[in-house]
Simulated scan of single mutants.
Amino acid sequence: MPRILFPIAGLFVVALVHACNIPVFRYALERWRPDPCEIIVFHREPVTKSQHQTIGSLETLAPTYDGPTHLRVILSNVGGDQEPDHRELWQSLPDDAKSKAIHEPYTVVRCKVTQGRQVNVWHGRLSEVKALGITQSPARDEMSRRLLAGDSVVWLMIRSVNESKNARARDLLRSQFETLADKIELPEGVGLPGSELFADVPLLLKFSLLEIEASDAKEQFLIKLLTGMQQEAFAAGEPLLVPVFGRGRALAVIPASDLNEHRMEDLTVFLSGACSCQVKEQNPGFDLLISTDWDTELFGADGEVPADTPQRQRQTSKPKLLTIPKGK
C-alpha cells in the first residue's frame, strides 16, 4: 500500500504500511483509552466539608479504568506551594476571578487538544461546575450510542447562523456517506494474529451526521470547546464539522468551507485504513469528554480487554515527519 498524504485545516497526516490490519476507527474504539481532562480547584481558605463533597462528586462524573481516570480533579492552594503550571494558570486568570476565590474555590476545566496543547474550556465558581455537563450531554450520549452500534465515523456539525452554509455542508456530507461506503474497502487480514477484534460491535463502513445548535443550553461545554478552536470561522458564519471516531476522538474541527469531496475522501481513507501507527499520541485528534464506560460496554464486566500498544513499541516508535503537498 502506498503512503496516504492529506492536509486539512492545518491537520497533516501520514499513513504508512504496518502489520496491524485493523482499521484506525476500530483500533481506536477497542484500544485507545481517552485522555483525561483536568478540573483544577483553586482555593485560599481550607476546603470545607460541603466543598469536599462537591469535589468528590466531580470525580465520579467519568469512569475510572485500570489506569488514569478520564477526569482528574486537582486542588491547588494559591497561598501555598503550587505546581509551576498551576501557578502560571492562576496568574493568567482575570482579577475578578481571583477575587472570587477569596470566598469560594475557583475552578478551571482544562482539556488536552490537538498535538498535546491544552485549552481552558471554562472557569468559574466550584458550585457552578456540576451544572456544566462536563462529561454528559444529549449529543455525546448519541455519539456514544452510534459508535458502539457500529458507526465508523459520526460527523458532528455545529450549525451556524447561516442556513445556506448549513445546508451545503449537510448535502456534501450526506452525498459522500453512501459514495465512500461503496468506494472504500476495509483492510484485508482483520482477525489474523496481530489484528484480532475483541468486541462484538459489527465491523463495517458506516457514517452518520449529528447536528447541534450553537444555542443549545445542554451542549454548551462541548460547543465552547469546539468553537473555541475555530473562533474566526464560526463567527464568520461557518458551520463547524467534527469527524468523531473510536471512543469519542475528534479528528479535527473543520470549517465547512475547508471541506470538499476530495478532502473528505482522504480523511475517510485514513480512518478506514490499516492502523499504521498504533501509538495513540502519534496520531492526530483529541478526545471528547464522554461519560461512557467504554471497556464495560465493549467487552462486558468480565470480558477480555485488549492491551493497548505494547510498551516496547511505545519506546521504539517515532513519528515520521514528511513534507505534505497542497491538497486539491
Rank of each mutant, 00 (worst) to 15 (best):
L156Y: 02
L203N: 01
L186A: 07
R140I: 10
P94N: 03
K328P: 13
G67Q: 08
G237S: 04
I212D: 00
C275K: 06
R145N: 00
P255V: 10
A252K: 08
Q136I: 04
R140E: 08
R72T: 11
R72V: 10
I134N: 05
R33N: 09
I40V: 15
F198M: 06
A252Q: 12
V41S: 15
C111E: 14
Q51F: 12
E128C: 12
E219H: 06
L172R: 13
G56S: 05
I74M: 03
F177H: 09
M143Y: 00
L186C: 11
P310M: 04
P187S: 02
D141E: 07
T60C: 12
R314F: 15
P63I: 02
Y27M: 13
V113R: 07
P2I: 01
L180N: 05
L222T: 07
A181K: 12
R249A: 10
D216H: 07
I74R: 06
G10R: 02
E163M: 09
H52S: 15
F25E: 01
L61E: 11
A149G: 07
K320Q: 10
C20R: 09
V24R: 05
D258V: 06
R110A: 07
S99W: 01
L29Q: 07
Y65F: 12
E297R: 05
S50G: 00
L259Y: 09
P7R: 09
L173F: 14
I8H: 08
G237L: 04
S257P: 04
E238P: 08
D85F: 13
M157T: 01
S127V: 06
R314D: 13
K320W: 14
N260M: 11
P306L: 02
G246H: 10
E211P: 07
G194C: 02
R117G: 01
M1V: 13
K318T: 06
Q115K: 12
D258T: 08
P7I: 03
R3V: 14
L271Q: 08
V153S: 05
H18A: 15
E297P: 00
V41N: 15
P68R: 02
P202A: 09
L271A: 09
T135A: 14
L259M: 11
P325M: 00
Q82G: 04
H43Y: 14
T227H: 10
L298M: 13
A15P: 05
R117V: 11
L5F: 15
S50C: 01
L251I: 15
I22Y: 08
P46L: 04
E219V: 09
E30A: 05
A235N: 14
T60S: 11
I55R: 10
D295W: 06
K224Y: 00
E178F: 12
C37E: 03
D293K: 09
R117F: 02
L289C: 14
L186M: 14
Q51C: 12
F12M: 03
S257Q: 12
P94D: 00
L186T: 11
E128W: 11
L210W: 05
L259A: 05
T268W: 10
Q230S: 10
L148W: 08
L75G: 09
L180I: 15
D182N: 15
E297A: 05
V113H: 07
G246D: 04
R249G: 01
R3D: 13
V41I: 15
A167T: 11
L173Q: 05
P63M: 06
K328M: 05
E142T: 12
S92M: 06
